[in-house]
Every structure is written in structure tokens, then in C-alpha cells.
Design a protein around this nucleic acid. Structure first.
Lengths: 247, 247
DNA sequence: CGCGTGATTGAAATTTATCAAATCGCGTGG
DNA sequence: CCACGCGATTTGATAAATTTCAATCACGCG
């Protein structure tokens, strides 16, 4: 928190951890300066609600640090996670008043925010931002559609394996060398896994222990998972080749 | 087909049926002229494959007429429809070599195509195209995420009702007045419905007859469905208010 | 040391898929 | 005009997967 707070005023964009991946990735120095002038930081603690579907949301923002979830839900309590926001991901939608989904901080989160109106104006003047936003949106669209295949057609076991593979791929980027075993530190609870996968927590739990019994994974405490043989895990995802979940 | 063929060369963009909804919607006359110079038409007959996931696709295109499906599948035959392309929808992705999903013509389809390289160049010069493409992509993203809720958390009956409601909303725009009953002419087979909803054709069939037995719908032949009371149908979708599937 | 939350396990119920067999709709050829 | 045949759909019986309900376990914390 104190570390987050130290960000709370002016921070040099060039020192920003998401400088080269966020909406500002393509900006030149002068464009960056314009953004810098109107940006402001906001922090949320784990569990806090960032936005509620249907309610007015007049900022847009990039995630600087932390993880947040996008969810949609049905009145009777059913919840479906529809996206995971990691650093550099974008929140909010130029040209729309209300938030289209619920957004909740999973860990402590720091946002680099802009008021929507000024941001929309900049969008028209600075093509680089719009271009980057388009790229990012199309990537998210691909990810959402991949997830539709999982939710519509994969078995519980395949879903679990796919999720683990996805987390490995996202978290452990420099893992090429680890011919022998990878380590996962699950960033989410069983309940969130269930909401992500369209399953119940009991099914998640059972499938995890099932995979463990067959030696495909080893469960280490509540959050730790060890994968001795990545290709064995990928073979369980239901995806075509051993190339796995690539998009 | 002959009608389609008559489009095969130069057509005035101002007479184009999708002029105000497609990527070119925001273009001025001169921009339109630039697009017009490099565009070309292509037609596909019902059932033809337009693109295959993973294979090179070096055009982008707008659907001028007809309907196409986006699908992803698993080697063992499981298929999930991840999108429905209607007139004005956009195909292809600037900045990506391969098609990210399979695209198939459901009905006869006419495309307004551009080679990818020239289109990408225009994209940099003509902000209006990029802006519109961003809007459209964000809308698709919202639709994909709504569908994730359906695939992950809705029951078979709710899925069927949601689909019927969606089709009504899309096809029957001026239906506000029809306090008494709406008519659906299903544009797709049971198999496609099943692939769309993440169900089997048998389950689709059973749920339809179930809804019919309760008087919520009336099945008229293979493709016709009559909805005597829209709100009764919406009540079955599982969505919050009677506002239904609005996003 | 007990409490509480999250996780696991078990048994039964429910939903949906699977396999198999009618039935329907409709165009074709006799 | 009508019988035939084919693909799509419906229906039935059964099986499998997942959910639900209930109980127990594990662990961090005051």
C-alpha cells in the first residue's frame, strides 16, 4: 500500500512498468506528455469493487499493478468471470456511459486513470492511442472467443488443464528453459477458478485432485501447483496439437 | 447468385446497403473514394468455407449480404460457434497473418474485400476507419462476453430462450408495436443452434418442444416459431429484468 | 486453543449427453 | 399425382458428467 501510495501523484511515464504494453505503448514523447498531463492514479485494495455493470463509469484506466476480474452475473447468484485484467490491460470504454460488466480488484490494484471526456478528445487527436487500443481489443476478443470454446465444449478436466496452462503461459513467460517442471502460484481462489471455468468449486477441487492422482500435477498447499511435465498437462487441455492454448 | 454477380465489379458505395454501419460508416466522400478504388467483391454460396483457422488470410472484408458463422473446434469433432456475422460485420484482422477462427457461409454471402496490406496502409491515413473498427470490435467483445455468461452458467432452457430472444431482437427490429406475438424464421439449423449454445441437437429439440408444451412458443414447421407473449419468453432467459438481453 | 474461511470428500440428485429408433418434410423420378 | 428416399428432427431409454447437499478437514490467526 505504501508503495502504491508513492505512485499517487506525478510519475514519469518512462519509468512506468507498463509503458510499452498499455494503450500508450505506441506514443511518442510529446504524446506521452499530453497523456501525462491529464492522468491520475487510483488504488483499490483486494476485494474492492472497481465498477458495477450498468452504473455510470466516467473514467477509463490502465492497470498498472495488480489483478482484477471482469464478471457478469445472474440475480440468483450465478456468476461467470469473463475476463482477467492484468497489468497493462485497459478498463472502460470510450463512447459508452455505463460499465458493461462488474470489475473487482482481486489483489491490491493501481490504476492509471483518465476522465473519459478528455481521453476521448485525445483519442481523436492521437492516432497512436486508438491504434493500440484497437490491437488490444482484438486480442481480448480472440481471448474471449477461445474461452467460449472452453465454456461451451470442454469437459471439466479439460477446463482445469486449460486454465493451468493459461496461467503458466501468462505468469511464467521465461519458462522455455525449464525442461523439468514448472511452478504455479495460483493467483485466485477455487471459487474464482470455478467462476472462470463455468463449474462449481467442488468440481474444480475434484478435478484437481484427479489430475494430482494421475501424477500430472502436484498440489502443494492451497495455492501452489507443481507441473512436472508440461506436455502431459497440455495433453489434457483438449487442444489440438501440443502447441496448446496459443492465441 | 445472378443478383450477387451483378455486384461483382464497381458499385457505388453510396448505394451500398451497409454504407452506414460497416467500417466505412464514418468516412467522408473522399475517403470513401479511396476505399472504393481498392475494393473488390467476392461471393460464396451457402456452406462454403470462407476461411480456416490457422491458414493465411490476406484479405479483410465487410459482409454486404448474407450470414456467416465463426466457429472454433476441437479435433475430435466438437464445434463451438463463437460468433454470427451479419451484413456490415467485419472479417479479418489488420496486423495478423492467419485467420483466428473458421469462417463459413451460412447463406449465400457477398463480401466487400480489401487486400490486407493496402487496407492497413489506409488505416493509418484514414482515422475514421480505425475509429469505426474500434467501435465495432468493442461491441463484438461485449457480445462475446455476454455469450460467455450463457455458455458458462445458463441452463439448456435458458440458453434456448436467450437465443430466441436474441434472434427476435436482431431480426425483428420494429417489433415494439407487436404487443401480440412475434414471428421468428430461424435462420439456422438445429445443429447450428446446438453449436451456438454449447448443447447437443437432441437437447435443443427437447427444450424447444418443452417450451412449446408450456405454450411459451409455438413451433411451426422446421424453421418457424411463433412467440405469443414476448415477456413470457424473456422470463425464461434467466436474465435479470424483463429488459432482457440488453447490452 | 478454538474459530472461521476455504478446501476436500462423499453420497445422492439432476441435468445433459449418448445411443438408437421412429417420424417428418420435401424434392425427385416414375 | 404419388410413392420413394434422404436428411433433418423428434422421441425414447440409458449412461455419464456435473451439481447439490452435507459433512469433514486444514490451516492461519487472534
Amino acid at each position: 500500500m505504501t508503495a502504491l501510495h508513492s505512485l499517487s501523484h506525478r510519475v514519469d511515464c518512462n519509468a512506468c512498468p507498463i509503458r510499452h504494453r498499455a494503450v500508450c505503448a505506441k506514443c511518442e514523447t510529446d504524446e506521452l506528455e499530453q497523456l501525462n498531463r491529464i492522468k491520475f492514479y487510483k488504488t483499490f485494495t483486494a476485494g474492492q469493487v472497481i465498477a458495477i455493470r450498468g452504473e455510470q463509469l466516467d473514467i477509463v484506466a490502465s492497470i498498472v499493478a495488480g489483478t482484477a476480474s471482469l464478471t457478469r452475473s445472474i440475480n440468483d447468484g450465478r456468476v461467470q468471470m469473463i475476463g482477467l485484467l492484468l497489468p497493462s490491460d485497459f478498463i472502460g470504454r470510450p463512447g459508452r456511459e455505463a460499465a458493461p460488466y462488474d470489475i473487482t480488484a482481486i489483489t491490491d490494484v493501481t490504476l492509471c486513470c483518465f476522465h473519459k471526456r478528455p481521453f476521448e478528445r485525445l483519442l481523436l487527436e492521437m492516432p497512436h492511442v486508438g491504434e493500440r487500443l484497437l490491437e488490444m481489443s482484438l486480442d481480448e476478443l480472440d481471448a474471449a472467443r477461445d474461452w467460449m470454446l472452453l465454456l461451451g465444449r470442454k469437459t471439466a478436466r479439460e477446463r482445469i488443464a486449460s486454465l493451468l496452462a493459461l496461467i503458466l503461459k501468462r505468469a511464467n513467460l521465461p519458462m522455455d528453459l525449464q525442461g523439468e517442471g514448472c511452478q504455479i502460484d495460483l493467483p485466485i481462489t477455487r471459487e474464482m477458478m470455478a467462476n472462470f471455468l463455468g463449474l462449481t468449486i467442488e468440481t474444480v477441487s475434484r478435478q484437481l485432485t484427479g489430475l494430482a492422482k494421475e501424477g500430472i500435477i502436484q498440489i502443494e498447499g492451497k495455492r501452489g501447483i507443481h507441473v512436472p511435465d508440461l506436455s502431459a498437462l497440455l495433453a489434457e487441455t483438449g487442444d489440438d496439437t501440443d502447441g496448446g492454448v496459443d492465441y
